[in-house]
Amino acid sequence: MLLSVTDLRKTYTTGDGVVTVLDGVDLSLGAGETLALTGESGSGKSTLLHLVGGLDEADAGRILLDGQDLTAMDDVSRAGMRRGTVGVIFQQFNLIPSLRVEDNISFQARLAGQHDAGWCADLAERMGLTPQLRKYPEQLSGGQQQRVAIARTLAPRPRLVLADEPTGNLDEETAAQVLALMLELVTDTGAGLLMVTHSHDLAARMERQVHLARGRIA
């Protein structure tokens, strides 16, 4: 099993007191498998994604990723996991504005020490970004920027791809194109895909769907 989440719990302290966001979540995902995580706003979808991506720390429970316990890792080890094993695609793209498209695509792979120029060029080609390689992100449309973000995430060939509303900022047609490309590439690399989405149409294109309600799997 690529990902195994057991009894995961997370609370936040706000001005109104302690809020339970995740209340004993169990989840698993195999290599090459795609999973849609749906739920209302505030149901804990993004929090679960952040915990699995090593971006945040759980209060209790276990996350086994590729056999390694993420919850037992310190900040530096989790950063190492984010560089190579996990790739996160954000809703806001989060590109580096001062780097050209080609440098943005290769950036995470170089950070992980797994840069493959041929694979990066192939990704750019398949994403339709070859004419844009010398441009800066601000010169691209929203759809093009999200394609750059997907290529950047896949460049180090991560074992698990996490996507947080990856098409939330795109129009319907562009969203469909981007998702198709993402699924194609994830399948090609044999990575697992866990995608958070509000859209039932997009969720329907995943192999499995999990619905989260009030911090629990419904």
Binding site: G53, D75, V76, A79, R82, R83, N94
Partner: peptide
């Protein structure tokens, strides 16, 4: 700030 957040999210240790 956004770049710093992105760099850390992509796996660059804070130190």
């Amino acid at each position: 700030r956004p770049v710093v957040r992105t760099l850390r999210a992509l796996g660059l240790p804070l130190r």
